[in-house]
């Protein structure tokens, strides 16, 4: 075996080990703790003052019966819930077509002094259920909260 082909085999082993190590590190939560894509209403309330004045993302379900449209047709009020805590939201944007009660949303915005969350970027989070129009959605609020995957980092 030539020297060159032996050193290439060593490189193969080293590269695979490095790749495997990096992946294990990431899978074990190496960066997960510092990388939270959105806060749940409970986490936002817990952060309290710490969340004020900064642009954060809030994720949760649109609370049933909470959608209200302001007189000017632009200001939209609703509440976002994770089943435990609820945060009041004002949105100054036209929501996507799928916006409705009980759907997951991710909102980018700021928590105001009075505890309402103001957003200009309202995103609808669709879950992995794909159903025909005639199928009933028999899922409870609890099932819908599960689809938010809040247990993920």
């Amino acid at each position: 075996m030539s020297n060159e082909s032996r050193s290439r085999k060593v490189l193969a082993i080293v590269a695979v080990l490095i790749a495997g190590g990096a992946l294990t590190f990431l899978a074990m939560g190496g960066i997960g703790e510092n990388l939270v894509y959105y806060w749940s209403p409970s986490e936002l309330k817990e952060a309290g003052e710490g969340a004020r004045g900064a642009t954060v993302r809030l994720g949760g379900l649109v609370a049933p019966g909470s959608i209200e449209r302001g007189d000017d047709g632009l200001a939209l009020r609703f509440a976002v819930t994770d089943g435990t805590e609820t945060v009041a939201v004002t949105a100054s944007t036209v929501p996507p077509a799928m916006f409705r009660e009980g759907i997951g949303v991710v909102l980018e915005g700021e928590l105001a002094g009075d505890g309402t969350f103001h957003t200009e970027r309202l995103m609808v989070k669709h879950d992995n259920e794909y159903r025909a129009p005639e199928e009933e959605d028999g899922r409870s609020m609890e099932d819908l909260v599960k689809s938010l995957q809040l247990e993920n980092g």
């Binding site: 047709g73 996507p96 077509a97």
Partner: peptide, 10 residues
């Protein structure tokens, strides 16, 4: 017309 119905049309 403005308020969506939760269903994407078109």
């Amino acid at each position: 017309a403005v308020m969506p119905e939760g269903v994407i049309a078109g």
